[in-house]
Design a protein around this nucleic acid. Structure first.
Length: 613
RNA sequence: GCGGGUGUAGCUCAGUUGGUUAGAGUAUCGGCCUGUCACGCCGAGGGUCGCGGGUUCGAGCCCCGUCACUCGCGCCA
């Protein structure tokens, strides 16, 4: 496909005679048997050189592929070629020759031919490389980031970035085909009190005031709906000043942001599911279930998987076994239950055949992760063993085994804590046990929707009710629910797409009613004045005729990461920052001149020294 | 902010119980080589063992601190 595109340009640019172009008549992936005898001009990088004294081979590389160049002492360019260093950029004139049967390279599309070089022009000589382009070796990330342009020449990263481009093109096409329209929204906007930390930009014309980079075009896309555009999408840059993770780049990332008017949750699902499933089918060979993504209510996900981003490739299901421990001889759990704790069981099929070290090791791992620890029962040839089984007694142990359907050589781990803590520990233990027992297949994508998120949650730190996710979501039951129900039991029309344990996107049916919005914010402790002040732009818009609307925003980087089978999001971003949000190649962030600061009415204050000194 | 891992030649790594002059591959430079596609052969240069301190007759190795990178926690409407 690329070649076809490139050729079209080439023909436009170079006219009838193919040797007229200044740099190339063909790319490094073009020449075949049929070209034998042709006079050609090629340009590219010296990928690899093999010098046999009287004969010299050069693998010439460009974006499209490789062509083997050959020179012998008959060539006037021989001495120049011999002195070339890897990664130098050259243009050559030569003649296409057939390779003999023994010397054909079946691994190369151009492997039937080679080009005998008559003349070489060095376009750009390369210094000794800090990072070799040839080969698959791993290199320290700071060097890779500093010399990103070299790293990007390497096969794997180069392919990832091209994949990313193709994925984005496919997403755009799929959205446009469904009647969505792409719009751009501002990059310099207002700071919003909710959500992550903002990146701020000082406003020169307004001393003491700041723009913020958008954490997402959330309010703008809702305003686009209010403006009557019906179906919006954008490959939208989003900026959040939060610390990095393997699947979270610091600073900035991209979403396939979309919003629709006059829709229910079902309509959003029906619009986005084929886009996501389609793009995964288009760009991956991994197995993908047909049909609709399963829908899992938030509460069920927390119970069965211990989090709201379950990896459904993992067959293990967590169960509540609190009642079997209540008032039992296993005193630690029994007394914790009296104080409001619950017990969650994580089955470990086949683990009973493993040594005690497996169970103790998993317990040690949990402690290292900062949890109280994991209890366990180990069943060997039908005999339940371990400290818990001993203290719990035969009857209760058997009841647990029956409930979980455990076999003669299985195991089970127990997480005991207050509900949220137990769910969390059980969730990470489920993943750990699944991985250790080799239960997670690597050759499939398992999608699901997480639905029915709670609208509010109790904020332990501030001892108040707060929004649990997006404050702009419509509460299920609307105004009536807000007025009559326990806020903590109210659900929202809020949903996530999860794939293989990675949160791919979240979305919601929005609250387009000013009265319901003010009521919802009131429950979370924000006065009408505060809402007017902070969200006035959007709230005001809702007073002049706002359509019911909703949308979602799948994360583009994470989609590409899954499709490229990369464990790290930086492998699918052209120029990522490191974990400390520095661009080691461009040297950002950087100091600025006093003049720039003066213009912005900014004075910097050094943080206090650690040691006093 | 906190916890784990890593840090030895440009790069990838080895380095035994603390013991003589810290090694290999690759890259670089020089020499040889007419069919390779990780070409091969011979040779050379290349080291603040991340940094600082300590223990010891003696530290790449042990201890303390610190820095860098990374993974996780916190954070992420």
């Amino acid at each position: 496909m690329f070649r076809a595109l490139f050729r079209r340009n080439c023909i436009l640019n170079k006219g009838a005679d193919s040797t007229m172009h200044a740099y190339r008549s063909h790319t490094c992936n073009d020449l075949r048997k049929e070209n034998v005898g042709d006079t050609v001009k090629l340009s590219g990088w010296v990928h690899r050189k093999r010098d046999h004294g009287g004969v010299l081979f050069i693998d010439l590389r460009d974006n499209y592929g490789f062509t083997q160049l050959v020179l012998d002492t008959d060539s006037k360019a021989f001495d120049t070629a011999e002195a070339l260093r890897s990664e130098s950029v050259i243009t050559i004139d030569g003649r296409v020759k057939a390779r003999s049967d023994e010397t054909v390279n079946k691994d190369l599309p151009t492997g039937d031919i080679e080009v005998f070089v008559d003349a070489i022009e060095i376009q750009s000589a390369a210094q000794e490389l800090p990072l070799p382009v040839f080969g698959e070796t791993e290199y320290p990330e700071d060097i890779r980031l500093k010399y990103r342009f070299l790293d990007l020449r390497r096969d794997r990263l180069h392919k990832n970035i091209l994949l990313r481009s193709n994925v984005i093109a496919s997403l755009r096409r799929r959205m446009i085909d469904q009647g969505f329209t792409e719009f751009q929204t501002p990059i310099l906007t207002a700071s919003s009190p909710e959500g992550a930390r903002d990146f701020l930009v000082p406003a020169r014309q307004h001393p003491g005031k700041f723009y913020a980079l958008p954490q997402a075009p959330q309010q703008f896309k809702q305003l686009i709906m209010v403006s009557g555009f019906d179906r919006y999408f954008q490959i939208a840059p989003c900026f959040r000043d939060e610390d990095a993770r393997a699947d979270r780049s610091p600073g900035e990332f991209y979403q396939l942001d979309m919003e629709m008017s006059f829709v229910t949750q079902e309509d959003v699902f029906n619009a986005i599911e084929p886009v996501i499933a389609g793009v995964f089918r288009e760009f991956s060979d991994k197995k993908i279930d047909g049909g609709a993504f399963p829908r899992i209510p938030f509460a069920e996900s927390m119970m069965k998987y211990g989090n709201d981003k379950p990896d459904l490739r993992n067959p293990l299901i967590i169960q509540d076994v609190t009642e079997h421990f209540r008032g039992s001889g296993f005193g630690i759990f029994a007394s914790m239950i009296e104080n409001g704790a619950v017990v969650r069981a994580i089955p470990a099929p086949g683990a009973g055949a493993k040594s005690r070290k497996f169970f103790d090791g998993t317990n040690d791992w949990a402690k290292k992760e900062g949890f109280a620890g994991l209890g366990y029962i180990k069943i060997t040839d039908g005999e339940a063993g371990g400290p818990i089984a001993k203290n719990l007694g035969e009857e209760r142990t058997q009841a647990i085994i029956d409930q979980l359907g455990l076999g003669d050589n299985d195991g089970v781990f127990f997480a005991c804590d207050k509900e949220a803590g137990a769910a969390k520990l059980a969730g990470v233990a489920r993943t750990k046990v699944g991985e250790d027992l080799g239960l997670i297949p690597d050759d499939e994508f398992k999608f699901c929707w997480i639905v029915d998120y709670p609208m509010f949650e109790y904020d332990e730190d501030n001892k108040k009710i707060d929004f649990s996710h997006n404050p702009f979501s419509m509460p299920q039951g609307g105004m009536e629910a807000l007025e009559n129900e326990d806020p903590l039991s109210i659900l929202a029309y809020q949903y996530d797409i999860v794939c293989n344990g990675i949160e791919l996107s979240s979305g919601a049916i929005r609250n387009h009613r000013p009265d319901i919005m003010i009521k919802a914010f009131g429950i979370a402790g924000y006065s009408e004045e505060v809402v007017e002040e902070e969200f006035g732009g959007m709230l005001n818009a809702f007073k002049y005729g706002a359509p019911p609307h909703g949308g979602i925003a799948p994360g583009v980087d994470r989609i590409v990461m899954l499709l490229a089978n990369e464990p790290n999001i930086r492998e699918v971003i052209l120029f990522p920052m490191n974990q400390r949000a520095e661009d080691l190649m461009m040297q950002a962030p950087s100091e600025v001149s006093p003049k720039q600061l003066r213009e912005l009415h900014i004075r910097t204050v050094e943080p206090p020294k650690k040691d006093g000194e």
